[in-house]
Amino acid sequence: MSFSNIRRILSEPVIWIGLLVPVCFVIFMCCGTYSAGFSDLLNPSPMLAAVLKLRAARLLCAFVVGGSLAVAGAACQAALRNPLAEPYILGVSGGASVGAAAAIILGLAMISEFFIPAFSFVGAVFALMLVLGMARCWAADTPASIALAGIVIGSMCSSLLMFIISISNSHELNGITWWLLGSLQPSGSMLLAFSAASLLMATLLFTLLGREVDAVTFGEETAFSLGADPKKLSYILLGVSSLLAACSVAVSGIIGFVGLIIPHIIRNLFGSQHRRLFPLCMLTGGIFLMGCDTFARCIFATRELPVGVITSFIGGPFFLWVLSRRRAWEG
C-alpha cells in the first residue's frame, strides 16, 4: 500500500469520523453526576462499575437512536425532495405516542416496563401501514400523497393522544409527558439490539442505493431517465426510514431535531452525495446525540434534563452557525 493510498483513505471523512466515535465514547463515559477520580476509573469499586455499565448502555442507546434518526431524516428528505422533511413525517411519532400513552393508561406499564416500548413500536408500525395503505388507495402513490397521508394520520393520532391525556390521572399524565419528552436509558436490551441491527442494515442498503437516491432528488422523470426506479425507491426509503424512526421512538421516546439538522450539516460540510451522506449521518448523528445526552446527564447534580431540550437548544444555534459559515465562505 503506497503512501498516497493511505492519505486518500485518511482523507475520507467516513474513516476519520468513524475513528472519532470511540474517542467520544470514552470521553463521555467519564462524565456524570457520580463523581470519580481518574484512579477510581482504573480500579473501579463495584458501585462505580455499575454506574459505568449504566453509562455505557445509555451511550450505546444514544448512538443507535441518534444514528437512526439522522439516517432516516436524510432518507426522508431525499424521497420527499424536501430538505425540511423529518423522519417522523409519516405519522410514526403520532402512532408511537398513542401506543405508549395507551400502555400507560391501561395500567400495562405498571405490570412490566417492557409494555411501553412494545406498544409504541406497534403503534408506530400501525400508523406507518395506515399511511402507506392510504396513499396506495388514492392510486397516486407519489411522495406528495404519502406525505399528505402522513400528516392526516399524524393529526388523527395527536387528537387520540389528547383524548387519552384528558382522561388520565396526574401520575399517568406525568408518565405520558415524560415519555413524550424522551429518555435514553435503555429499558430492554432486546429492542436496542434490534434497533442497532436495523440501523446497520438500513445504512448499508441506503449506501448501496446511494447513486439512485441522488437521482431521485431530481424528480421522478429525471430519476427514471437516469435509470433509477423512483416509485420503488421512494417506498423503500420512506418505509425503511420510518421503521428506523419507529424503533428509535420505541427505545427512547420522541427526540426532535436530530433527523432534521444532522443531514443538513453533513451536506454542508461534506457534500450531498448519498453514498457518503448516509454513513456519515449514522456516525455523526450518533456522536451528536451521545454528546447531547451526556450534557443532559451532567448539567444538574440531581436532575436529568430531557435530551430533546438539549438537542434543540444546542442543535439550533449550531445549525445556524453551519449555514452562515457556508454563506460567508462563498461570499
Partner: peptide, 11 residues
Amino acid sequence: VPQNIYAPIPF
C-alpha cells in the same frame, strides 16, 4: 431531459 427540473438538494 424534462422541462421542469427540481433541485432541492444542493448537489
